[in-house]
Design a protein around this nucleic acid. Structure first.
Lengths: 192, 192
DNA sequence: TTCGTCATGTAATGGGTTACATGATTAC
DNA sequence: GTAATCATGTAACCCATTACATGACGAA
């Protein structure tokens, strides 16, 4: 396979294109308006990725939009092929361990609208247990740091721990919501 | 110059070695017990970096510890050279724009104990204004996301915004502390 | 004696950015 | 007309990881 199996960038592009066909510049803008690893994606990454995806037949190209008379040449609109749609569906239905790593999680989460409830729950719970591990690690580190008494390092550690703990609380709310929605149907994501 | 001017890894190693001479494996452990970009530094990065630093005369090598009779060969202890100490002091006294980027900030912050009060304040304030910019960016993105109504993406964005806002609050407490300490002297970092 | 950890290192690879290069379109 | 933004792309580079390779030491 030309395109790496769980290439996060490819997944993000696939997800962006799922809504509607877009040209490269616009894809970057959409990705840039979201959190996660592609907040400031460079064209030096984007365009080669699009090329690879075309070569792998995940996306196809179309000249410009629906109005050829309104000038504006040299704008390449990408749309999902059937293979691309299938690939996206396949990835959305699976939730490997990478789905709860920092970078991948954000990308996966932003596609929850198109993910089935069971997979959403698996990802949220996987993420949660990943963060629990990290809390344990940081706690151990905190004790070690305190022994070498360094007020600033300890404070940084303490703040980092707090941040992760808060993310766990956030996940707990989301998981609760998902569970409620699964039994009673309806009402996704409103843990604000 | 062989070693890049503000190589964060080099700075982190310099800072770790400032306390006392250590061998590579131990440097990695210390770095690993802290937050920041070197939580899980690989040897493939560490040892070449140490080599570069030796070549640049920032650190020097010594065979093992003070007890040659207690066996244990092949352990290379690194210590700061005068040039290394000078380089560290120079970097600790300066606070370029990179000092408030995500990765660098944590490393710089963990060395605050050895940084003068004025530079500490500059870094904290720089970081704060950096995050203010980000809050503005995310807020704009949030409005854009809400227009395309996607409950999950919006929730992710909202949570990200909240996280950054909390970090700003944390910084505010630290800045306040630093200001109080500068006028009255004493008592660093206790914003818990 | 074998397993886990300590300890050091190199080569290949990966996944991104930066710098460079070009040109059309839009707003002032 | 000219500056900003839209729009696409390549080549060089950076900085890390992974996989590989080696070997000593301590404990079961």
């Amino acid at each position: 396979m030309v395109v790496g199996r769980t290439d996060v960038l490819v997944l993000a592009i696939l997800g962006t294109l799922a809504e509607k066909p877009l040209h490269g510049y616009e894809i970057r803008k959409r990705l840039g308006s979201q959190l996660g690893p592609f907040r400031a994606l460079s064209y030096g990454s984007l365009y080669p990725a699009l090329k690879r995806m075309v070569a792998a037949d995940l996306i196809g190209v179309n000249d410009d939009g629906p109005d050829p008379a309104s000038s504006r040449r040299s704008r390449i609109v990408y749309r999902l092929t059937e293979a691309g749609k299938a690939q996206l569906q396949e990835e959305l239905a699976s939730a490997g361990a990478s789905a709860w790593e920092d970078d991948t999680f954000d990308v996966r989460f932003s596609m929850f609208e198109h993910t089935d409830a069971a997979t959403r729950l698996r990802i949220l719970e996987g993420r949660r247990s990943r963060l629990s591990e990290r809390i344990e690690e940081i706690s151990v580190g905190l004790r070690a740091v305190r022994e070498r008494h360094d007020a600033y390092t300890a404070e940084l550690q303490r703040h980092g721990l707090e941040r992760v703990e808060r993310e766990v609380e956030w996940l707990d709310k989301l998981i609760e919501n998902e569970r409620a929605a699964t039994s009673g149907d309806d009402d996704p994501a409103s843990a604000g």
